[in-house]
Design a protein around this nucleic acid. Structure first.
Length: 430
RNA sequence: GGAGAAGUGGCCGAGUGGUUGAAGGCGCCGCUCUCGAAAAGCGGUAGGCUCGCAAGGGUCUCGUGAGUUCGAAUCUCACCUUCUCCGCCA
């Protein structure tokens, strides 16, 4: 959520930003509701003030009668106030975050900007298979059985592929929980930030509607799984319960940044993507993911995202996978984002780059509603800035490994860095 | 799942219908004393919204929400959370 004061003082900027992000909002109405709200508030408060003053003493019969009337009037005005506030909220919740100055303006993914391409694509002297074919041939992915048991877009990861998931995790944790490694990455990226390591977390995978709303992630609701019996949603990313971990909290300046590495299952209904990527495990309703989340000082948040991207690159490079870094344009980025940067790994089987990592810098857009703040050394309180990024989306990273490391004989080599964790060097038909 | 108890400021804790946004203590900050520190003494110590150039004012907040009342931290209801006992359980 944006600050209404900021909106009022920067109407033109917000208007333009909405347009760039392709979201239609009636700002004039918003301002009108805000005016109305304030006016009602003033009326209510002056009536309350009177009532309070009288009620501090033992009032006479006449005064009681008068106050009874005033009380009715207050109730009336309060209801009007609630209505106006609901209307107001409905609009302000829709307004997306202001895009960072470096964000390219564009209508959709065609406006995204490739920042750099790193790594050599594998030279294969045979026609590479797609991951789902490899998975079937090697009997390590079984969507057909999953369809019987749970439905479309679910999967069984089997055998060595299942083990590889845990190897990936151990590998990633070994890097991002190590302060020395973080320091190195910061130095290489020429970033001046604290080298605070990430705290490993296994968060809840369900979340209350109210908290989901305050994370600005409840919408689009069609994308969320909901459990009516307990009024809970399943999270679509560890971000949802990591970012809300410090709801209604105020940090001291010295405590920041706080960095978490959260591992959880993510649940997505994939509404609106019917028929898209139906084969294999690229787009499924349930997948596991290691996610980075941080709370930082406002002036550090851009650098913090640079660190997140540097970590992502380090992780992808450590697996020897070719990738490109893409800066997402206004029309394609998430509503809460000020700056979004994706990493896409080259997939030989599909003969194209596919998104495996994303990084969202959200300034104080989430923290304002979460009321996660920092008390500065000068005594002032501000909202913290929040960053969120993928460390490894396991499924898609497995796809990247399968397709890039496939051999002519149909086997898959294991990246060197993972071998010590999984204990094998190849996946082949036994 | 059943029975019971409780949720007050950064922390502990008083307060059961009327100058209580809240006694007292701890902590924290400032000052005095001291060469300095400790101790002691004095003073100050929540946040949101809103009006105001400011000084300052108004209002809301005692887990959350709704209600009773002229008036609610105090009474009623629902929900959330915590604790105790019983049951069940990876």
């Amino acid at each position: 959520m944006l600050d209404i004061k900021f909106i009022r003082e920067n109407l033109q900027l917000v208007e333009t930003n909405n347009k760039n992000k392709r979201i239609e909002v009636d700002l004039k109405k918003l301002v009108e509701f805000d005016d109305e709200r304030k006016q009602l508030q003033a009326q209510i408060e002056s009536l309350r003030s009177e009532r309070k003053r009288v009620s501090k003493t033992k009032p006479s019969e006449a005064e009681i009668a008068e106050m009874r009337q005033k009380g009715d009037k207050i109730s009336q005005l309060e209801e009007a106030f609630r209505n106006v506030e609901n209307n107001f909220n409905e609009i302000i919740y829709k307004i997306p975050n202001i895009a960072h100055e470096s964000t390219p303006v564009g209508p959709d993914e065609s406006g995204n900007k490739v920042l750099r391409q790193i790594g050599e694509r594998p030279k294969l002297d045979f026609t590479p298979k797609e991951h789902w074919q490899l998975g079937k041939d090697l009997d390590i992915i079984d969507n057909e059985k999953a369809a019987n048991v749970t439905g479309a877009r679910f999967t069984y990861l089997k055998g060595k592929l299942a083990l590889l998931q845990f190897a990936l995790l151990q590998h990633a944790f070994s890097i991002i929980t190590d302060e020395k490694r973080i320091k190195k990455i910061l130095k290489k990226a020429k970033l001046d930030l604290k080298s605070t390591p990430f705290i490993p977390i296994i968060p809840p995978v369900m979340i209350r509607p109210e908290v989901f709303q305050r994370m600005a992630r409840l919408e689009p609701k069609e994308e969320r799984y909901y459990i009516p019996s307990d009024d809970l949603y399943l999270i679509g990313s560890a971000e949802h319960t990591l970012g809300s971990l410090h709801i209604d909290e105020t940090f001291n300046e010295n405590d920041l940044p706080i960095r978490y590495a959260g591992y959880s299952t993510a649940f997505r209904r994939e509404a609106g993507s019917y028929g898209k990527d139906m084969k294999g495990i690229l787009r499924v309703h349930q997948f596991d993911k290691l996610e980075m989340e941080s709370f930082s000082l406002p002036e550090d948040s851009v650098k913090e995202q640079d660190l997140f991207v540097a970590i992502q690159e380090e992780l992808v490079q450590s697996l020897g996978l070719p990738y490109q870094v893409v800066q997402i344009c206004t029309g394609d980025m998430g509503g809460p984002d000020a700056r979004q940067i994706d990493i896409e790994i080259w997939m030989p089987g599909q003969n194209k780059y596919r998104e495996t990592h994303t990084s969202d810098m959200m300034t104080d857009y989430q923290s304002r509603r979460l009321k996660t703040k920092v008390k500065r050394k000068n005594g002032k309180t501000e909202f913290v800035h929040m960053n969120d990024a993928t460390a490894f989306a396991i499924g898609r990273t497995l796809i990247a490994i399968m397709e890039n490391y496939q051999q002519k004989d149909g086997s898959i080599k294991i990246p060197k860095a993972l071998q010590k964790y999984c204990g094998f060097k190849v996946i082949k038909n036994e």
